[in-house]
Write a protein that binds this DNA or RNA. Sequence first.
DNA 1: TTGTAAGCGTTATCAC
DNA 2: GTGATAACGCTTACAA
Lengths: 328, 328
Amino acid sequence: MINIKDVAKAAGVSTATVSRVLANTDSPVRPETKERVLKAINDLGYRPNLVARSLRAQKTAKIGLVVSDIRNPFFTAISRAVEDAAYEQGYSVLMCNTDENPDKEALYLDLLHDENVAGVIFSPTHQFSEGAKEYNATIPFVFVDRTVKSRHVDMVLLDNGPAAYDLTTHLIENGYRKIAGLFGNASTTSPERNRGFNKALKDHDLTPFATHFIPPRIQQGYETALALLSQTDKPDAIFTSNSMLTAGAFRAIRDAKLSVPKDVGLVGFDETTWGELVEPPITVIAQPTEEIGRTATELLFQRIADPSRSPKTIILNGELHIRGSSVR
Amino acid sequence: MINIKDVAKAAGVSTATVSRVLANTDSPVRPETKERVLKAINDLGYRPNLVARSLRAQKTAKIGLVVSDIRNPFFTAISRAVEDAAYEQGYSVLMCNTDENPDKEALYLDLLHDENVAGVIFSPTHQFSEGAKEYNATIPFVFVDRTVKSRHVDMVLLDNGPAAYDLTTHLIENGYRKIAGLFGNASTTSPERNRGFNKALKDHDLTPFATHFIPPRIQQGYETALALLSQTDKPDAIFTSNSMLTAGAFRAIRDAKLSVPKDVGLVGFDETTWGELVEPPITVIAQPTEEIGRTATELLFQRIADPSRSPKTIILNGELHIRGSSVR
DNA sequence: TTGTAAGCGTTATCAC
DNA sequence: GTGATAACGCTTACAA
């Protein structure tokens, strides 16, 4: 491994000079010296050791990305957007999946701290909320998708309540009355979406046909929906709060030999590859994932640049995409 | 930031002793000393600085994961498996998307090198092949999904040829004769799958109805398939080499008002959430993504542990999942 | 404009 | 069993 000393020797200068050339600021270094150094760097194929640089600078060009599971299409999209935005700033991204497990989450946060990452983009588990403040003191954090109680943090969120309200209203306006709600039990978005859901029903003098908070997995959505549809008194529509549950419910409806949207309406959150491919295609609230990820990353860089900056909460709007699954 | 010196002072010992306690090997340290150090660590909330440790040790507990796009469901699954396996060994994962762009790929490989990562799990672009050897000398590499010419590297691959052969044969056995092939143009898997495709046709005295190598994107798959289906002389089946193209082709068939599997058979690679949800569900070669990612990571750890170990190529088998899209 | 040298936080070698 | 201390590769006062 060839280091800055080798370059210095080859160019006949001190390591300080090499460093100055590397920094490439307007630090004073004679053009011909610079030339020689550059040549040496090139000849030797020298590459600066970022670990050493990080230690000396007491900061790294890495950010942590902490989400429950990157296989959730929502987080897949967020991750990609974060990586893009980070890459543009010369930062790299450490991928951390917590599986909604607070212990794993804590381990990863410690790790990121120990790695001296410049900041963290973080979609916390339910349990995390409490610890937010202390962590936030140490490392710049930006929360995405999910809130924490502390208000003194940066967040990028969806307008979950209103979005759920619109989605539910849309069902009602299409004649659905016995609407069951399937919500994830791991995220703060669910209670918010649940409130919007309830409010829309109430505003139309309706009550939820059923409400279930369950693990946000296809299988759970399937089982819960199937149970609902096996009763003699069935729901005539199912509202789901994320795409895993939507997929599960969709399959359950099919297996119950019921038809969408005639027998059962179905709506959910998040655009997916399959949402438009199935028959009928699914009505959803589309989250601006690209923008969420990018905004969060930009917010993080702002906080890294100025840690004392007063925190912002940015709320982006979901967009109702009406498709066949809810229109009869 | 509290460091090892602070702990040493608090415990009334030297940094060396603290370090020995931290190492927690059978290095000689009196139990009561150890006790005091542990207490100091706890009281102060000391956490070792991994950057410093990495510099000193000349190695890090990080691996790079370099793929074209994590949004490709195949790579999403691989990434998750890699992260799982790495996490179990106390390693963290740097996520790198190349977008099939050799420049971005080169930048990321340099970055990973400069970050002193312990190794790289790598699905290279087409152009990379040449550079494989020299890179491999510096950092332990394991190639996944895609081959490189050099044989002196670790690889985890699918049996692409035989899998494609089986998939094509399945179409033929179900009465399809005018089979068009849509292949990605970015990956070494496509030529291999193409060979299997051609061989199966040849073995049944058939020729490809059409063969297209195109960018592996939904839109490209859609356009190419739509063009094929708009001719008076149409294919009666479409073979696709990845799930992006499958999705595009599926949509094209629908928009052409043709029915699957009656008018057009459709098969592809990779399990996706939607493959079983659409009507009819899609016949695919399922890749053992979990196993691919895990095996690659384990291979990488073996190479990290013993760099002189002779390289292995592990070939895993795809599994034909027959569904409605190809059976009439 | 350039060089010397201290120091970032560890760990490992060598004394004691 | 424990403590000094050098070293990992880099950047930045401070001197010259």
